[in-house]
């Protein structure tokens, strides 16, 4: 099983836009990915409601897990997404 531990980089945490971007990316991945915080139960990463319920904030450590072909590459790109501050990439047009 492939595993990545990553610290959430987005200022607003794994909420709102960052959560939507992450869940959409996980949903498009070729393998089933789970995400968990600490010792809590892992939840499907393609489930917006479950990911929001993690309540992960900026600086929270989360663990991604996946099995099968492409798991390593998938987790690399998802971990990279989580580590970035997606809020800061928000265009300042409002």
């Amino acid at each position: 099983m492939a595993t990545r531990t990553v610290t959430v980089g987005s200022a607003s945490g794994l909420h709102a836009r960052p959560a939507a971007l992450f869940v959409a990316a996980a949903g498009a991945a070729p393998v089933r990915v789970t995400i968990r915080t600490g010792e809590k139960r892992a939840v499907p990463a393609n489930s917006m409601l479950s990911v929001l319920s993690l309540g992960a904030k900026q600086g929270t450590e989360v663990v991604l897990e996946a099995d099968g072909e492409g798991a390593e590459a998938t987790l690399d790109s998802l971990a990279d997404l989580l580590a970035r501050d997606l809020d800061a990439e928000e265009p300042a047009d409002v």
Partner: peptide
């Protein structure tokens, strides 16, 4: 056409489209 609103609506659509739900 409003960026903020589009983000909110898309996030809500993802909640209703949730596989666990």
């Amino acid at each position: 056409g409003e960026k903020t609103l589009v983000d909110v609506l898309r996030a809500q659509a993802m909640m209703a489209d949730d596989p666990v739900l």
